[in-house]
């Protein structure tokens, strides 16, 4: 049998585009060409334009569809934002290591997201909610720039009804509609109501936010091996060959993209650069 070519994307079609914010949209594929676990990422192809790495934002347990929530920021994402339902895409993966959700049984899970970093966290959150009885409690702390920039505004009301899920949101700058806290995400991390001996923290957001949130989580009492950080790099191959995502001895694509603080805290290379 021929060896499977890890660089070959599978064809798929765009089914629906949901506008989340002025710059962020959710792209719903018409099928689920590949299986993934929460935390793993894929390389999405816009044919003739290129491919880029994204972590799916849909429930990994959903057998029928795959969604990616994407911010328009570069060449590939700009081309993606021009596409319409029915247009052809390519997808390959999944790559990287998933969150070790099984090992979190009985624990409190403290999730911190910033901006479009909420996209991969939604996939994790949905996977956790599918087996919510396994966990003591789930916390979600989310920060966006302004109320307009909050991703999944349409889904928060539903999540807020879940008894075991404790959500607090903040925005850097509020407006007349905003009633919640204002300030960067660390302002809602002053109180972390977990038992640090039996909890894990998960963080996803821009590098500067990762840095300050990690510092706060360590100071609050999370052990380094219980802090899971979703790292961002300019990844290309996804399989640990091309070297774009090198971080010290790691390939973020293959050894991550989620790395624990324990793995990177002593690296000479600053992981938050």
């Amino acid at each position: 049998m021929a060896v499977k070519n890890p660089y070959t994307p599978l064809p798929c079609r765009l089914k629906e585009v949901i506008e989340e914010t002025p710059t962020i949209r959710t792209f719903v594929l018409d099928s689920k060409p590949i299986d993934f676990e929460a935390g793993q990422f894929v390389e999405l192809t816009v044919p003739g334009v290129g491919e880029a790495p994204f972590t799916p934002s849909s429930n990994p347990n959903d057998p029928e569809k795959l969604e990616l929530t994407i911010m328009k920021v570069g060449r590939v994402t700009s081309a993606l934002f021009e596409l319409k339902p029915g247009d052809l895409l390519g997808i390959r993966g999944p790559y990287g290591k998933p969150y070790p959700i099984d090992s979190w049984k009985g624990k409190e899970i403290f999730i911190v997201g910033g901006g479009v970093g909420m996209a991969p966290l939604r996939s994790l959150l949905l996977a956790l909610l599918d087996r919510v009885r396994d966990f003591k409690r789930i916390y979600l702390r989310y920060g966006a720039r302004t109320p307009k920039d909050i991703v999944y505004k349409r889904l928060f009301p539903e999540w807020e009804k879940v008894k075991k899920l404790d959500i607090v949101q903040t925005v850097d700058v509020g407006d007349e509609t905003w009633k919640g806290p204002t300030g960067v995400v660390t302002v809602i991390l002053e109180e972390i109501p977990v038992n640090f001996k039996n909890s894990v923290a998960v963080v996803c957001g821009p590098p500067i936010m990762l840095k300050f949130v990690t510092m706060r989580l360590v100071e609050a009492g999370f052990a380094p091996e219980t802090i899971y950080l979703s790292m961002e790099k300019n990844m290309s191959c996804g399989i640990g060959k091309c070297n774009h995502c090198r971080l010290g001895p790691y390939y973020v694509c293959k050894d991550g993209p989620v790395l624990t603080w324990d793995m990177i805290k002593d690296l000479k290379e600053d992981p938050f650069l």
Binding site: T45, V46, G48, V49, G50, E51, N234, C237, N243
Partner: peptide
Amino acid sequence: HCFDIQDEEKARVRIWDSCLFPLF
């Protein structure tokens, strides 16, 4: 062996890249 993967209009190509390039 650093490389990059890019698309042309009708093909996907792999080209050598370098960790010394600022865009890497």
